[in-house]
C-alpha cells in the first residue's frame, strides 16, 4: 500500500482517546459476563478492535512497540489458563468444568461474586485477542 503523505492529526488525536475508551469498555464487558451480556469472547474482540484501530491510524511499527510480545504466546497461555480452570475441579473429584462460586466481601467494593468462570473467561479472552490480532496483522504485515 502506498503511504499517502497527508497530515492526519485529527485521526491520530481522536484514535488516542477513542482507543482508550474502547479498551476500558472491553474490560467492563469482560467482567460483566457470566450473569449479564458480555464475557471473554466479546471483550477479547473489542480489545483486538482497539489495537487494530491503533494500527490503522499509526502503523505496524508503532503497534509492535506498544505491544512488544508475540501474540502466539497469548493464544497458548489463554488455552492453558482455560484448561487449568477446568481441570481444577477434576482434582477435587468433581466432573470436568464444574463451576464454583462464592460471595466475598472485598474492602471498598462491597460484596463481590467470585466464580471459577472468571479465569476460564480470562483464558477465552486471551485466546480471542491473540487469534484475532494474529489473523488481522498477518494480512496487514504482508502489505508492505
Amino acid at each position: 500500500m502506498k503511504q499517502l503523505k497527508t497530515n492526519n492529526v485529527m485521526l491520530h488525536t481522536l484514535v488516542r482517546i477513542v482507543s482508550f475508551v474502547v479498551l476500558a469498555f472491553s474490560i467492563y464487558l469482560f467482567f460483566a459476563g457470566h450473569n449479564n451480556p458480555g464475557g471473554g469472547f466479546i471483550g477479547g474482540l473489542m480489545t483486538a478492535a482497539a489495537f487494530v484501530l491503533l494500527y490503522l491510524s499509526f502503523n505496524m511499527k508503532t503497534l509492535k512497540k506498544a505491544l512488544p510480545f508475540n501474540f502466539d504466546l497469548l493464544i497458548g497461555g489463554g488455552l492453558l489458563i482455560a484448561f487449568l480452570t477446568g481441570v481444577t475441579s477434576m482434582l477435587f473429584g468433581f466432573p470436568f468444568l464444574t463451576q464454583f462460586f462464592e460471595y466475598v466481601q472485598i474492602p471498598f467494593m462491597g460484596e463481590v461474586e467470585l466464580t471459577t468462570a472468571l479465569p476460564f473467561d480470562l483464558g477465552v479472552y486471551l485466546v480471542v485477542l491473540g487469534a484475532a490480532l494474529t489473523i488481522i496483522l498477518t494480512i496487514a504485515e504482508d502489505d508492505k
Partner: peptide, 12 residues
Amino acid sequence: FGVTSLILVLAY
C-alpha cells in the same frame, strides 16, 4: 468467525 478468517487468509 474462526473458519471465515482462516479461509480469508488462505484465499489471500
